[in-house]
Write a protein that binds this DNA or RNA. Structure first.
Lengths: 212, 212, 212, 212
DNA sequence: CATGAATGAGTGTTCATTCAT
DNA sequence: CATGAATGAACACTCATTCAT
C-alpha cells in the first residue's frame, strides 16, 4: 500500500531533478532570476550544462519548478499548530508572527517569497500558483485568528479583511528587507526583526483592544 | 497670431527630455530596469537611439532622472507640507499616509518603488541612489512625525526606529500589491487601499495612544 | 605679380580652413587619428560640427590636409644651412643631428612624423606624399654630408645608402619615443635626447673614422 | 590504423587557441588592434564570435596572448642563447642584432611592434604589458651585452643607458620600415636589412673600440 | 543518457555624417 | 554660409540553448 519503491538503477536518474532544483533554489534566492546563469546551476548540482536542459526545457521552466517545489510546504505546518493554540487571541497573534519569522522568515526559504514578489510580473502562472498555495492559506489563518479574537470579545469588531494586511505587511516587509540589500553594509541602522515584530504586534493588539 | 512661433527644431529640443522621461517611466514600470532596452525608450519617445544618449549619458542616468522627476520630487513636496502641518500628530500621520497613497502610491510612478525592490540587488549604484534620495528622506519624515507625537505627549514613548516600519510597511505592501498582480484581474477580495490605510492608521494611533 | 589679395569680406571665409587645420593638427598630434573626435576639432577652431564638414568632406580628408599642410615646411630650411656649413664633416654631422632635434624633433611639429609612422598604413597616398616631400630630401641631405666626408677623406668609404639610416634611425626613434608614451610616468629612466645624440654621433664618427 | 583517432570535437578543442592566435596575429598586424573586430578574428579562424570568447576572455587578453606567443617567446629564447654565448662581446652584439632580425624582425610577428608604436597611446594597459614583457627584457639583454664588453675591456666605458638605443633604434626602424610601406612596391632604393645591420654593428663596434 | 564545445542573437554606447532651419 | 539636433551603423561581450559525439 506504500508507494512503489523505484528500482535501484533508476535511483540516480530520479535524483537529478531534485539536485538541480536544490542548486537552483540556492542560486535564484541568492542572485535573482536574471543574474543566475544556467551553467552555474548545473555546476552546483554536479552535472553539465547540457544535462540541465535534459530535465528542464528552459531556464524559465526551471524557475517555475523551483517555486512550485518549495513554496507550499512550510505554510501548511503552521496552520494546524495555530488551530490548536490554547491561549488568548492576542498571545496567539504575537506567537504566530514571531514563530513565522523564526521558522520561515529568518531562513533561506523565505527567499522564495522575495523572489515571487520580484518576478511575479514576468511569471503570471507562478503568481497565481503562489497566491493559491501560499498567500490564500496564510490569509485564511490570519483571518481565523482575528475572527477568533473578535468572537471571543478580545478584539474590537474591526474590518478583518484589511486588518489581515496590518498583520502581514510588516512580515512581508521583513522578508523583502532581508533579501534585498543584505549585502550593502552602509544602510540604515538595520532592523531587529524580533523586536520589530514584538512592538508591532503590541501596537496592533492595543489598537484592537476593546477600548472605552 | 500672437507670440512668434519657435522653430520646429527648437521646440522639439525643449520637449525631448520630458518625452524621454515619460517613455522611460512607462517602460521601466512595465518591464523593469534591466529588461527595458534603451532603444525602446527612444522609439516610444519618437526619436532614434542616438538621441536618447544626447540627453542622458547612460541608461542608469536616465533611470535616476526618472526617479528624481517622479519619486523624489513628490516625496520632497510631501515633506515640506508635512513639516508645516498644524494639527495634532495623529491627524498628521493619517493625513500623511493617505496623501502618500493618493499622490504617489496610486500612480504609475510607484512602480519605480516596486522595481527597486526587484532589481536593487543587481544594480547597487541605483539602489544607493534610491536609498539616498527617496528612502532616507521618507524615513526621516516618518521619524519626525513620530517623535513630534512623543514630544508633544500625544504618543507613548515607543521605539521610534521600529515604529517607522509599522508605518511604512503597509504602504510598501500596497505598492507591491498594485504592481505585482496588476495585470491579473482575478479574484482575492482585493484591498481598498484608502480604507486599509485609514484602519491601519487608526490601529497604530490607538496602539501608540498614551495609556490610561 | 604678387598673389592677388583676397577681398576683405572673403577674409573670414578663407581663414576657416586654416583655423580648422591648426586645431586638427594639435589634436591629431596629441591623441592620434582615431581618438580625435571631429566635434572637438570644430570646437577648438571655434565653429560648429557642421561647419567642419563644410570645408572637409570627411575626417580622413581633414587628416590628409593636416599632414600635407604641415609636413614639408621645416625640412627645406635646414638643407640650405647645411650646404653652407664651413667646418669638417664630422662637426657638420653632429651639428646637423643636434640642430634637427632642437628645431624639429623637440617641437610639437614632430608629432606629424609620429603620426605618419603610425597611420601610414591606412593612408597610402599620404605615405607617398610624406616620402617624397620629407624623407627623400632628408635622405639626400644626410647622403650629401656623408659623401662630403668621404670625398674629403674624413670618413672611410662606407656604404652610404645604409649609413644614412645609422644617422637617421636614432632621430626617428627619439620622435617616436617623445610622442608615444609621454604620459606614462613609470617608464624606464627616460632618455636625454641631446646626450643620446651626442654619444651616438660620436660612435658613428669614430666608426667612420679613417682607420689606422 | 595506429593510434586511436580522437573525437573530432576534442581534436578541434586542442587546435582552437592556436588557430585563433594565428588569425589574430594576421589581422592585428594587417589592420591594427582597434581596427580589428573580434568577430573577424573568429571568422578567419573558422569559428563563431562566441567561440573566441570561450578561449580568450577579451580582445585585450587575446592580444596579450598573441604578444606572448609571437614576440615575448622569441625574445626570451634569444636571451638565453645570448647569455650562453661564448665569443667576444663584439661578435655577440653583431650576432644578436642579425639574429633578432632573422628570427623576429623579418617575420610577420614584428608587425606587433609596429602596432604597439601606433596604438600604445590609446591602450595604456597593452602598452604596459608590452613594455614589461618585451621591451624591458630586450633592454636588459642589450645592456648586459654592452656591460659585458666594457667589463671585459672590449669596449670603451661608454654611457650604456644611451648606447642601448644606438643598438636598438636601427632595429626598430627596420621594423617600422617593413610594416609602414610594405604594401607600396614603388621606389626608394630599399634597404637591405642584413647589410644595414652588419654595417651599423660594425660602426658601433669601431665606435666603442678601446681607443688607440 | 550525459557531455561540453559551439553557436549567435541581443544590447548599451559612440561618433562621423546629414540636413532642416 | 552656419548651425546643432538628429541619425544609425558599428562593436565587444554574454549566455541560453543546441547537438555531435
Amino acid at each position: 500500500m506504500s508507494e512503489p519503491q523505484p528500482h535501484k538503477r533508476e535511483r540516480r536518474k530520479q535524483d537529478r531533478p531534485g539536485e538541480l532544483l536544490e542548486a537552483a533554489l540556492d542560486l535564484f534566492v541568492e542572485k535573482g532570476f536574471a543574474a543566475t546563469r544556467s551553467e552555474e546551476v548545473a555546476i552546483r548540482a554536479g552535472v553539465s550544462k547540457g544535462t540541465l536542459f535534459l530535465y528542464f526545457p528552459s531556464k524559465e521552466e526551471l524557475f517555475k519548478a523551483v517555486v512550485m517545489e518549495n513554496v507550499a510546504r512550510p505554510v501548511a505546518e503552521g496552520i494546524t499548530e495555530a488551530e490548536n493554540f490554547a491561549g488568548n487571541s492576542g498571545e496567539l497573534l504575537t506567537w504566530m508572527m514571531l514563530e513565522w519569522w523564526r521558522r520561515y522568515g529568518a531562513t533561506k526559504a523565505s527567499g522564495i517569497s522575495k523572489l515571487m514578489m520580484s518576478e511575479a510580473g514576468n511569471f503570471p502562472e507562478l503568481a497565481e500558483f503562489f497566491r493559491n498555495n501560499v498567500i490564500q492559506p496564510a490569509h485564511a489563518l490570519v483571518r481565523y485568528v482575528l475572527q477568533r479574537g473578535i468572537d471571543r470579545g478580545e478584539f474590537r469588531a474591526i474590518d478583518v479583511d484589511h486588518a489581515i494586511y496590518s498583520v502581514m505587511s510588516p512580515l512581508i516587509f521583513l522578508v523583502m528587507e532581508k533579501h534585498s540589500t543584505g549585502a550593502c553594509s552602509n544602510a540604515q541602522p538595520s532592523i531587529n526583526p524580533e523586536q520589530f515584530i514584538t512592538q508591532h504586534s503590541e501596537l496592533l493588539l492595543r489598537g484592537m483592544a476593546v477600548g472605552h
